[in-house]
Amino acid sequence: MLPDYLSNILTRKGGKRLLDAHSPRKIRDRPRRFRDFPIIDLDRCVNCGACADACPVGESDDQPPALEITDRGPVVHRERCIRCGLCAEVCPVGAIEVGALTREVEERITPPKPARVVVDEDLCVGCGRCRDVCPSDAIEVDDTARVDPDRCVLCERCIEACPVAGAIKIIPMDVEELSERWAERLKEALREAKG
């Protein structure tokens, strides 16, 4: 009997390996914080346009920007993308994934919002335009409009759409209130981690 390695060479597969320089070799795993091309989850996307605003690769005369907002939602042009990962950092709903960095971003506790949108009930006429333009369905209109602060992504589209000047305002949050909220979120996160 031939030794194992000889019979292995004489088989078709082994012979191919002998002649073939393209031997399989272990290429190192990707680093744990590697930023890949962004993948956008269109189901979660609210089409607010924050990613396109943050993208450092702008448009030129003949080329589109790396992240373009179209009718079907944001589209990544891979040949333009520089893999910086800014779009994932600014996305308010976490719909963009850029390789393993996304995990790092998600592991941080989502900070409380630095501002909130407030409706002045005396001025509001209840026309419902803000509800139509809101990308995240945060506004309900009965007599006057009401804003759900948890769902609001601070895109300010309602302010642009509102026909009455000053009826919808964006108010920066108080620093003390912000720090209180931070403490609450931290406690919650700790409780979740224990439980």
């Binding site: 450092p56 690769v57 702008g58 448009e59 030129s60 080329q63 920007p65 042009h77 040949e79 333009r80 993308c81 520089i82």
Partner: peptide
């Protein structure tokens, strides 16, 4: 590279 494929970050206004 992105530059050779599309002009990259340098091909903007």
């Amino acid at each position: 590279g992105a530059c050779a494929c599309s002009g990259g970050i340098f091909n903007q206004n």
